[in-house]
């Protein structure tokens, strides 16, 4: 596992997400309303919708395809749906977003 540099924090839209390609995986990084940056696999467990295009509310993203709600801290889909995505460790250092892969 290594820390990789992603982008400046302000390159992610406020209360929004951005897709990141790293090696073979596609990762969604989000900038939450409380300022935190979190990252999960950019594939909804339902039908692989791009979560990075979803609507953010608190630490939950709502998939743009069929409105599944994914908790970004645990990676779990919220009931009544069932499923999960991989979560990634992130940190912000001096305005720069890092991802641990």
């Amino acid at each position: 596992m290594k820390w990789l540099k992603v982008c400046r924090k302000d390159e992610i839209p406020e209360r929004g997400g951005r897709a990141v390609l790293a090696g073979g995986s596609r990762i969604a990084v989000f900038r939450l309303s409380d300022g935190r940056v979190v990252a999960v696999e950019d594939r909804c467990p339902h039908k692989e919708g791009p979560l990075s295009d979803g609507l953010l509310t608190g630490a939950t993203v709502i998939c743009p395809m069929h409105h599944w709600k994914i908790d970004l801290e645990s990676g779990n889909a919220l009931p009544p749906d069932c499923g999960c995505v991989k979560t990634y460790e992130t940190k912000v250092d001096d305005g720069i977003v890092w991802l641990r892969l």
């Binding site: 290594k2 540099k5 982008c7 390159e11 839209p13 897709a19 990141v20 390609l21 596609r26």
Partner: peptide, 17 residues
């Protein structure tokens, strides 16, 4: 002015220790 539609590509070899 400010590209935001493209996915950010990171080189998996760019390592910071």
């Amino acid at each position: 002015e400010r590209p935001g539609m493209k996915p950010i590509k990171i080189d998996a070899r760019a390592v910071n220790e």
